[in-house]
Design a protein around this nucleic acid. Sequence first.
DNA 1: TCTGGGGTCCTAGGACCC
DNA 2: TCTGGGGTCCTAGGACCC
Length: 424
Amino acid sequence: MRRLYALVDCNNFYASCERVFAPHLRERPVVVLSNNDGCVVARSAEAKAAGIPMGKPAFQCEGLFKRHGAAVFSSNYALYGDLSARVMAVLARLAPALEVYSIDEAFLDLAGVPGGAGAWARRIRDEVHRATGIPVSVGVGESKTLAKIANRVAKKDPACEGVFDLAVHPDPDAVLARIETGDVWGVGRRYARRLESLGARTALEFKRLDRDLVRRALTVAGLHVWLELHGVEAVPLEQAAPAKQAIASSRSFGRPVRELAELEEAVAAYAARAADKLRSQGSVASCVLAHLHTSRFRQGVPHYANAASQALVPATDHPPDIIRAARAAVARIFRPGLDYKKAGVLLTGLEAASSRQLSLLEPGREESERKQALAETAERINRRFGRETARFAATGAVRPWAMRQTRRSPRYTTVWDELPVVRA
DNA sequence: TCTGGGGTCCTAGGACCC
DNA sequence: TCTGGGGTCCTAGGACCC
């Protein structure tokens, strides 16, 4: 049977999330900043029209913000994550199979839906909006890559009203002829440049290149894109996310950090966060790497960045062990007298906790059980009363290094004290 | 003053094995 | 003169994605 995929993509997702609980912002430009209030990472249609650029440092945009009356928000991942889960839950009801591709995108298997894919896609769009308040665009195609392209058309062309079905289009190649190679999923800046040197500027020209030439110039990764443009599935739907092979947690600091004690505290907090993620996917780690950086942008002073790793023997998911190792690692690369801007932790050598490689240094059963009980108790408390209600002292109480977040909206859907109030 | 965070896969080359 | 063949594992770097 012919395959048929839909890509559902939330429009301007973070900006749309902010509007769900602040409907008075519907006409105003809305902008959302990256962590630490660094760069513009999401813009409503009005903000795009006002010429507010994606990825630009916020401090360089303040004039633009003011001139256009933009509502500017710090990132509120508690809100975005929760609304994302609601969108995905609606989608799961509307398709036999679903791949959650990112916080704001999902691929759906649409083969065999009743009444045709186009009508079904419109139903998806309407149902998600009704149930969550989030506007989405839906693209349909015979491979995930073609569905991505269709989605792009759905977004760009107002006549589509958010839905475009490339599979029933009378002349799909004419559509591909209007897509630049760099806008094709899997083609970044480098590949686009190589393709251009081969004479292909559009998706259609790419599709018409010789297969072996593509394989040589762009490796198998590029070949997969080429096949998908031909409607041949090369990137199958992944319904269950595979366990991560590495888990990272890193942040820029709200202000420069000079003291080792503060760096250790920050790294401990990131290690605790990474350990949480590790435990929630049921893995143990055999190595922890800590890294730190001074500012990449400051003129006149040399940039210092370094990393050190520490083995975890035996592999573990015990937060205090991971915190201790991360602190030890960062102490080894600390150089006094520098202004640090960022640090982070990476857990690698992951394996399933259930099939863990045992070690001669294995702690006794009693100790293992004590460790498990500690971590599980903290998790229970935090599930019930909110993240970080119970936390490790090593991660700091005051946290002077914490990221800036001066314009965060309430966590409307995940924190009792921040629930929206409705008066009727 | 101020510039994000978190991942995956592929390839080439070296070490090492029989 | 002449210097095998085949394989695995690891790492660093490059490329991509959101």
